[in-house]
Design a protein around this nucleic acid. Structure first.
Lengths: 197, 197
DNA sequence: ACCTGAACACCGTTCAAGT
DNA sequence: ACCTGAACACCGTTCAAGT
C-alpha cells in the first residue's frame, strides 16, 4: 500500500471510530468521509462494505476476546471465568450502538467481513461453556450458539434506552440461568443434580 | 371522518400490514403509499408518524394481551400463566420484524404513539409477575421492567437469522431464569431455598 | 375536508474522469 | 495507484396547490 493510501486508511478508521461512537454502527458513511476530508470513493476503496469498516474498528477487541477465552479455559473457577468472558463480550459489542445486530447477521453470512471474527468468538466461548458443563457448573441443555445469542440479547438490551440502566441486573439474571449453582455460596462445588439426601 | 377518508384510512392500514409483514417495521412509507394508491401526504395525514401506523396495526393485539393478563391473574397455576403470557407477548412483537425496537424506544418516549400501549402491557405483566412472586414461583429480585425487557430480548432474538431457529429453546432458558421451581417435576411446589436436608 | 405530488435534504453505491 | 465527486436511485418529511 502506498504511503498516502495508508495514511488515508488510518485516518478514515480513526474518524469512523469517533463518528460510530456517537451515531452507532449505522452512522452515515458519507458523513464519515466528509469529516475525514476524503472523497466517498476513497472510503469505499478502503472499506468496500460497512461490515469491513466495523470489522477493522473491532478487530483488536475481537482478538483480545478470543485470546482471553483461551486463557480462561484453564482457570481455577470455570464458572467465574465463563461469566467474566460473557461480560467482556457484551461490553465489546456495546462499543458501537447497533453493532450487535450486524454481528448476528454476519454469523449467517459467510460473505460478511464480520463473519470470521464472530464465528471464532463464538467458538472460543463454546469451549469455555463445554468445560463449565463438564464440571457441572453450567446447564447442560445449551450450546455455544445459545451462549452467544444470550450475550447478543444482553448487548441489545444495553442499546435500548428503557433497559440500559438495568443492564447489570439483566446480565446477572441471565448469567444465573446459565450457571447451575443456584444456591448462594456453596463451598462444595460438586456436579450432578442438586438434591443430596 | 368523511366516508372517502375513512376508506383511505382502512385501505392504507391493510396495505401497510401486508408490506410490514414482509419488510418489517421499518418498511418504506413511500412504498406503502404507492401500493395503496394514495399520495404520500394522505398517508401522513392519517398516520402522522411511523409509530402511529404501527400502533394502529398492533392495537388489537395489544388490547388482547392486556385483557389476557387480567384474566390470567386469577389462574390456578400462576407460573404457567406467567409463562403463557410471556410467550404471547413475544409472539405479538414478532408480527413485524424490528417492531420490538420501536416498542422499547416508545417506553421512554411519552410522545410516541406506541407509548401508552406498551406501558399498559408492561403494567399488566407486572401484576402477573407480582402474583407469581407472592406465591414463590418467580424470582423475587426482578420487576415488571425486567420482565418486559426479557420478553423484548426474546422477540429480538427471534428477528435475528442466527438465533431465530433456536427461539423456542432460548425462550425456555429465560423462562427458567424467571421461575423459581428449578427441579424438573416437583409436586410439592413450596417456596424458599431449594436444599431440603 | 381531504388529497396530491413536487420540493428539500438526506442516504448508499457506482464509476468516469482526473492526478 | 490512488483519489474525487457527480450521478443514480432511493429515503422521510413538509407544504403549496388543487378538488
Amino acid at each position: 500500500m502506498r504511503a498516502d493510501a495508508k495514511k488515508n486508511y488510518e485516518h478514515i478508521l480513526a474518524v469512523a471510530g469517533t463518528v460510530a461512537t456517537i451515531d452507532g454502527a449505522g452512522a452515515s458513511l458519507r458523513d464519515i468521509a466528509r469529516r475525514a476530508g476524503v472523497g466517498l470513493g476513497t472510503l469505499y476503496r478502503h472499506f468496500p462494505t460497512r461490515e469491513a469498516l466495523l470489522e477493522a474498528l473491532l478487530r483488536a477487541s475481537f482478538d483480545a476476546l478470543t485470546v482471553k477465552a483461551g486463557e480462561l479455559e484453564t482457570a481455577h473457577a470455570i464458572d467465574e471465568a465463563l461469566v467474566s468472558w460473557l461480560r467482556d463480550v457484551v461490553a465489546c459489542a456495546r462499543n458501537y450502538k447497533g453493532v450487535i445486530t450486524a454481528m448476528m447477521a454476519a454469523m449467517e453470512d459467510t460473505n460478511s467481513a464480520l463473519h470470521a471474527s464472530c464465528v471464532s468468538m463464538r467458538t472460543a466461548g463454546s469451549r469455555l461453556l463445554t468445560r463449565a458443563q463438564s464440571e457441572g457448573v453450567a446447564r447442560s441443555d445449551m450450546d455455544g450458539e445459545d451462549l452467544f445469542s444470550l450475550a447478543a440479547a444482553l448487548a441489545w438490551l444495553g442499546d435500548q434506552p428503557s433497559s440500559a440502566p438495568r443492564a447489570e441486573h439483566l446480565f446477572s439474571l441471565i448469567a444465573s440461568a446459565i450457571l447451575t449453582n443456584r444456591g448462594s455460596s456453596d463451598p462444595s462445588r460438586t456436579p450432578g443434580p442438586s438434591a443430596s439426601r
